[in-house]
Amino acid sequence: MADIRLEGVGHSYDGGRTWALRPMTWTWRSGRAYALLGPSGCGKTTLLNIISGLLSPTVGRVWFDDRDVTGVPTAGRNIAQVFQFPVLYEEMSVYNNLAFPLRNRRYPAAEVDQRVRRVAQLLGLEEHLRRRSRRLDPGRQQIVSLGRGLVRSQVAAVLLDEPLTVVDPAMKWTLRSKLKEIHRDTGHTLIYVTHDQTEALTFADEVVVLNQGAIMQAGEPSELFLSPAHEFVGHFIGSPGMNVLPAELVDGVVRVGDAPVGRAVGQAAGKAAGEAAGELPPGPVRIGVRPEFVRLDGGVAGLAARVTGVDRMGAYNLVHARVNGHTLIAKTDASAAFEPGASQSLRFAEGRAFLFRDAVRCGVIEPLDGRGEA
């Protein structure tokens, strides 16, 4: 295992006219489980292929601990990589497919058998070990392919490029928990590429959010959800994503139309709620607040809102409301009764409504009186 350090690494497929991966400096710490999360085309696979050596970066250096591996081919990096679709020897049995990476590196026969059976047990492949791989369905073949990547005990990292794409949805929950179990068992550095926020948030110790070839934010799943540093992170993570409401900052007070919402406290994107960073200059801002932290009631305090619709989701409701010409969504208890057309008062949970400028978080809203909800 090794720390994997990217030093000014970037990649362009057209000679530098556009960047598929914008130059970045980043370190993947040894032994941690990472999810690399972002939409299709954001640069996730490009980044993974640079780490594995399948692709040489246009600029920058790649280090494994203190070893510069930028020019080292994949075979010399001691990396295990699992691709989106199964890569197997179809005429081999499942057992022999799992054993192949170990035999190829001359592991002792007893250790080969022990590791193959351990991985087979964790992935639910025990009863299939004698079957030829080509006789398995595509989802099961991908699980074998996943096992091939995880069976080795000494690798710099295991890279997983959307490995559950062809796996039956009912099995994905089980496999994600199995991956976490294997990670605890082996201590491998895992980098798991996905566009599925559920996969990322349930699997990883740390989630790295990528968009348009750049890292938007990285942190624990709870940090990304509760304290988004960029509007994109707020939109991409959460279902539904973060509400955004245009506002104006005047004399330190955030206003939506003529209505005061709360007091603005400057806060750098890297700081958590409660860590103040000074005053913000006046001018336009955008309020970002998740549906979970929007409060609706019939009282007079708060922003005037009109209910436009209710989505009943079973365990909860999503209430759509218009505020100053813009739509916000509130996530409410399933028993809460809101009817389209009804007038409501809308407030934000304290410390959970953030201010953004140029899509980057710059502050947080606090109550005008210093207590209660904004």
Results as ranks from 00 to 15, higher is better:
D3G: 05
I4R: 00
R22Y: 10
P23M: 03
W26S: 01
R32W: 09
P39N: 05
T45N: 11
T46W: 02
L47M: 15
N49V: 03
T58P: 01
G60S: 09
R61S: 12
V62K: 02
D65N: 13
R67M: 12
T70V: 09
T74M: 13
A75V: 12
R77H: 01
V82W: 01
V82Y: 03
V87P: 01
V87Y: 02
M92E: 12
Y95T: 00
A109S: 15
R115M: 12
A120T: 11
L123S: 07
G124L: 00
S133R: 06
P138S: 05
G139W: 02
Q142N: 06
V151K: 02
Q154T: 13
V155K: 03
V158M: 01
D161W: 00
R176G: 12
A204W: 09
V208S: 04
V208P: 08
Q217C: 06
P221M: 02
L226K: 10
H235I: 13
S239W: 10
N243A: 11
E248C: 13
L249W: 05
P260I: 08
Q267I: 11
Q267N: 06
A273M: 12
G278I: 06
P284H: 13
I287H: 07
A305T: 12
V307R: 02
G309D: 12
G309H: 05
G314S: 03
A321T: 12
V323P: 03
T332C: 14
A336Y: 08
E339V: 15
P340G: 05
F354S: 07
G370R: 05
R371W: 07
A374H: 13
